[in-house]
């Protein structure tokens, strides 16, 4: 069954159409990679799914529930969706542990000890147990992004949205974050990820969607979309990526 189903999404900013009758379906336990030039609408799509932006038309269904209905409680919906941003967006005034336990404690009403035990367990699993009491500015970019992923996971989300989570990282730090995403896939997490890492998209994604001017121009298995694209615009985009040495 589809966990996420977007139909005919439209979003405009001051007359500039950013999402244009966009359709996207994500089945449970599947990983969908969004690729496309900068400005093609990948971030906007993820923000709309997480209800950080209001769509101007179309519907978004999560687990069969229409979450684009203005009557739904957006806070309740967001608890079921984890989101990770390009710039990590950790809370600089909170320690790693407090960053992770904030939502479990305040949103889910867990006891401090219970939330911290869960957080430590998650941190240990990604090799950051020693950093529990560090503050974000004392961590490397890769460590910060891994903490951000753990923070999103602490809510036990049904769906993870990852927005170019490695784009701000130094090349040698990209690997540790990608490893974490691989492990998430192995655990069966449903994910939608916007990415410029074509090699990673090919490896981890079940489906690749190429976005251009707010529409899904081409989608399918990674070998097909990245290997034998049928659309001229996809081929053009991939050629530019190859020229930039990123494939």
């Amino acid at each position: 069954m589809a966990l996420l189903r977007c139909r005919g999404l439209r979003k405009e900013f001051a007359g500039h159409v950013v999402l244009d009758r966009l359709d996207l379906t994500v089945a449970e336990h599947r990983v969908v990679a969004l690729i496309g030039a900068s400005g093609s609408g990948k971030s906007t799509l993820l923000r709309c799914v997480n209800l950080l932006e209001e769509v101007d038309d179309g519907t978004i269904e999560l687990d069969g529930e229409d979450i684009s209905d203005p009557r739904v409680d957006a806070d309740r919906v967001r608890r079921r969706i984890g989101m990770v941003f390009q710039a990590y967006n950790l809370f600089p005034h909170l320690s790693v542990l407090d960053n992770i336990t904030l939502a479990p404690r305040r949103v889910h009403g867990r006891a401090r000890a219970e939330a911290e035990a869960q957080a430590r367990d998650l941190l240990d699993r990604v090799g950051l147990g020693a950093k529990a009491h560090a503050y974000p500015d004392a961590l490397s970019g890769g460590q910060q992004q891994r903490v951000a992923i753990v923070r999103a996971l602490a809510n036990s989300p049904r769906l993870m949205l990852l927005d170019e989570v490695t784009s701000a990282l130094d090349p040698e730090l990209v690997g540790e974050v990608l490893t974490m995403i691989r492990d998430l896939k192995a655990d069966g997490m449903t994910m939608v990820l916007a990415t410029h890492e074509m090699g990673f998209a090919r490896e981890v994604a079940d489906e690749v969607c190429f976005l251009d001017a707010g529409r899904v121009v081409e989608s399918g298995p990674p070998e097909q979309v990245l290997g034998e694209p049928t659309q001229a615009r996809t081929r053009q985009f991939l050629r530019r990526i190859i020229e930039a040495g990123r494939l």
């Binding site: 923000r47 967001r78 949103v107």
Partner: peptide, 13 residues
């Protein structure tokens, strides 16, 4: 604003 987005995305009111 990205701090607000991060907080809201975690389900905080």
């Amino acid at each position: 604003p990205s701090q607000l987005a991060a907080a809201r995305s975690l389900g905080l009111t």
